[in-house]
Design a protein around this nucleic acid. Structure first.
Lengths: 235, 235, 235, 235
DNA sequence: AATGAATGAGCGTTCATTCAT
DNA sequence: CATGAATGAACGCTCATTCAT
């Protein structure tokens, strides 16, 4: 499956065995379901998570130290470990929420629309706005390569796959010429959108919205009319 | 003389004047063809560069230590500094050669062709093969984000720009509907191709060549027929 | 809290605001009197400071590595950085306390005396005993040249100035011929005393006390009677 | 003897046995006796020595690397070793010449004078001008502590002693009260003069000449009239 | 005489993590 | 929950020196 992402070239910093593996999900529960707050449930875990998301998306994972995160959250480095077992787990938690938020954004954008191409375009816009604007969590999902954090790669990839499934459905709904490779279409669009993180500057002329529409348009008619696939050009 | 590669004895991290850009080809020739006449022509600098390229593209820049590179090149860490003043400079040298090689590959692929779309397709194929196959140097150019190495970012971006200029020319030659945003087309294609580094597995079913052709085809007819730009849909 | 001594987690060598000068006495008290109530009052910071003072005054600043200090304090090199952000800061902390101690010694020696020349002599004795005997902190103040540690030079000089002000007052009180240059007198005496660190051997015949008295005497009558200033020799 | 200077607290960088110990003197011969130049005797050794003197007196011995010296002399680090066996030897050679030059300066200044106090004053002026002005060699003699270079300390101290003998003679000639400690007088004067290197700024108001005269004057009448020695106050 | 490359040890500092309090 | 101190390994880099060419 081309969505697999983690060729383990890992090597350094073999983390001492991760103690309790379930810890990755534990802290999230408090985020997903703040629910009825316990009297002293004013946990500072969300603060930590916010700080981590902000720093990971600005400086990358390796470029951010736990000291950075701790001090941004107003605590000492050791205190982080009350909430997250390892730095990797912290990343997983950020990823988890990032995927949730980007999924929610795309689903909300797509919901009121019926036309498959319009739905695709709306998804592109929502996606690009999420990963270029201020959703630090979503940005991390695109910014941090699972392969760079071997011990957590599986969990990160699993999250990404969750999101890509959503796109597979969007693409599956398109009325395309029979020969069109729908997977290639999905990979191309998502790749083009994600890579924008590498060059897009907020002060530029075109907004994420415009950009997303341009990208969609570039594949629209082409795909719809049936592109000449390399193997069997229509001639 | 590999002057651009051996800025030895630079003293204290002064950013150093950006090294004359025309030297771009000089070091390569001496590396590719070590000749047989120099006094100490048995320099191991090329070995170091190769090791760096291999490790940078597999583990990233931050994920690779100078000790890793040195030991891969069969030397002691300190010995690296006979050839490169800093780790950053080593990256710049790899980038330099990576851009050279990918430029050469694309130009060679495009040269015998006249039709603009065929040329674009050939460029995509050459690009994708370079950054997915065994050209470690080219892969580093896509893999390592300039922003992650602030002290060298300018020099890295300058190299990338050199390459993108080549693409601008290719796209400028396409017969497109008047309203088509050629920059968006270029960014989309290159983004989609580059991002493939994040998911492509060599053991997959489709080759870089096939993939590149599919991507090209997806934008071909669309763009050629005049896509509906977001601002002014054709309908 | 030894705030001036534990500027922990300072991140990247930004010169850091020169730390409020009034903190001068705070850290000392906590070091001198570790008390018995703090939660982790068993801090080994004083140990580190002592080790640093001992090594700096014996081997100089550049001649002492942080590994030397750490191992003398029974810790690992990295552990030093729990207490001091940089080696420079460690030196500043030693200097701070050195100046405090030599100030205290001189003030205590001078306090019970009224006659200006007797006060000057007592100051010389106290100064010389401090910088030749076992007060490692005071010795460092004389031994380590501020100019050799550029990043900390300002802070070091500020400390020294604090001490010299004390001497200016002592010299100002002397009944001298009108033409006598009091600054020259101060610089001569202090220079002669400080330089003794370069040649004085504890096993010698004359004690610091004797030496200090000799130096004082050598300028006493001369100055008192009005020396021939160079500009206007008495002929 | 108070002129001894080297309490060996050495420890690090135990130099691999200095090969040929006589090398310390060898290079000097070419300096002392340039004599009739051999055809290709355009040795660059003097260049190296000059560079070393300049850097040692500005940055200290430990603060100067052989790379610094080599590059200042326009050569590569390895090339230095054609002229000097070790960095220490280079320092010894600088010291040697520094002492020669300061001796020569003092002797020349004193020569035309007969009065002992005038001779002392002239010596002070010559000494201070040498170590504060542009005689890099002389400045090194005062700037670099023999004890900081254990392997060469003996040779350095021997040079210094050579110079101090000259001062002993000057002081011995002074008509002083019987109880005056002539050694203390010498040490005081030289200490005060040498220490000026630590605070004197060229842009200041008083010249080295003025300063030297002030210092001399401060001890003149006092010593001449018979100071109250601490042991036996005149009262 | 000089070079360019290499050596091996050591530098100041940062890292993710642990743990008694 | 949080702290402050500590750990042990690794980081990028510089050092004086060597040596074949």
């Amino acid at each position: 499956m081309p969505s697999a992402l983690a060729p383990s070239f890992a090597k350094r910093r073999e983390p001492r065995p991760p103690r309790r593996d379930t810890a990755g999900l534990a802290p999230l529960s408090s985020l997903v379901a703040p629910a009825t707050r316990q009297p002293h449930a004013d946990s500072r875990a969300p603060l930590v998570l916010d700080a981590a998301a902000r720093l990971f998306c600005r400086q990358g994972f390796e470029g951010t130290s736990v000291r950075d995160i701790a001090s941004a959250a107003g605590m000492l480095p050791g205190s982080l470990y009350c909430h997250f077992a390892t730095k990797d787990d912290l990343l997983v938690a950020v990823y988890l929420r990032g995927v949730e938020q980007i999924c929610a954004a795309v689903e909300a954008a797509v919901l009121p629309l019926a036309d498959p191409w319009q739905r695709l375009e709306a998804a592109c816009v929502a996606h690009l706005e999420a990963i270029l604007r201020n959703d630090d969590y979503a940005r991390v999902v695109v910014r941090v390569r699972p392969a760079d954090v071997p011990a957590a790669a599986d969990r990160l990839v699993a999250q990404r796959d969750r999101y890509e499934a959503l796109w597979s459905a969007l693409v599956a709904a398109l009325p395309l010429a029979r020969r069109t490779d729908r997977k290639a279409l999905r990979l191309m669009l998502l790749g083009a959108l994600n890579w924008a993180q590498n060059w897009y500057r907020a002060d530029g002329t075109s907004s994420p919205r415009t950009l997303a529409r341009q990208f969609t348009a570039l594949v629209h008619q082409s795909a719809a009319h049936g592109p000449r696939t390399p193997e069997s050009p229509t001639t």
